[in-house]
Design a protein around this nucleic acid. Structure first.
Lengths: 162, 162
DNA sequence: TATTGTTATACTCTATAACTATA
DNA sequence: TATAGTTATAGAGTATAACAATA
């Protein structure tokens, strides 16, 4: 289990991390320039906009975007202060908070999206062939699902070598 | 140019970003638990360790890891204070600072690496087939090289639609 | 003039722990 | 007891602008 990665694995890992770092940096700038939001805030809004009901509980909203409850509370507070979402109690579960995207929030997403798509296309998809797209999509979907299924693997839970 | 991404592109983009976000979070925790470093600090050390001379100028060191000079100065200062690197003038260019990894720095990298590799293998490579690895490596290498070749694309430089 | 790097500063993000309230 | 969320707080990361020194 302590075997080193093969050189090809290592190179692939590094290429993946650096590519996404560069892409993240680029879209972060675009989102901030076009909409005055951080990428995390944009992701949260985009997620809400993509929901039929246009609302999610805090826990649902956090999933995959933010890794601490307090962090999400903070970001949701900023979005609410900016008038892009509202927060209210859930009828189903009195403990839960329903976050709903406002018209302004939808407009903000719409204002950011075209430029965002342009950056992603120019940086990520431009160098890919027609064959690469489904291959990458298939691989990354599988990887994501695998990671989601993993136990949180928090440091405290982590077993050191079996 | 303002055409939306095709659904397959969008799904691929999201899967890529979420996967790497999860992976980044996991390795960040591993690096901090095993070596008391942030991922950026580990990347800087690993980069130095991978160099024949075991030293690079600040500018060379920054490349692809950090996006502001002051940020690198800050991180290099932390690494120096921890005794993991030393900084000194370059004989070739009096303006440049040569950053050299110390024995302690090399030992720190060595202490982190096995667990790091384990996390990467378990999270990223476990769900990949023998065919997927070269495919992903090829694609991400191409994407990275393409992004590196791009003009910085800073917001101020960015042209809006040709 | 352009480049390398540092400093000072300010801001954002994130995480931890303690807490309230509901299931 | 466990879960949903908030608050307060502290720490780390990052970026901007002004600066000094060398090419």
């Amino acid at each position: 289990m302590a075997d080193p990665l093969e050189p090809e694995q290592l190179a692939t890992y590094f290429a993946l991390m650096e590519s996404v770092s560069l892409l993240h940096h680029a879209v972060e700038q675009q989102v901030r320039a076009a909409g005055g939001l951080s990428y995390v805030q944009f992701q949260l809004l985009a997620r809400l906009a993509d929901t039929p009901e246009r609302r999610l509980t805090m826990t649902e909203l956090a999933d995959g975007v933010v890794y601490s409850r307090s962090g999400l509370t903070h970001q949701a507070g900023l979005l609410e202060k900016a008038g892009l979402v509202t927060r209210g109690p859930s009828p189903d579960d009195q403990r839960a908070t329903l976050v709903t995207i406002t018209e302004d929030g939808l407009a903000r997403v719409a204002a950011i999206l075209p430029g965002h798509v342009e950056v992603v296309r120019d940086l990520l998809f431009a160098p890919l062939s027609d064959k690469d797209l489904p291959a990458l999509g298939d691989i990354m979907t599988r990887v994501r699902d695998h990671m989601r299924a993993q136990p949180p693997r928090s440091v405290t839970t982590r077993r050191r070598r079996g």
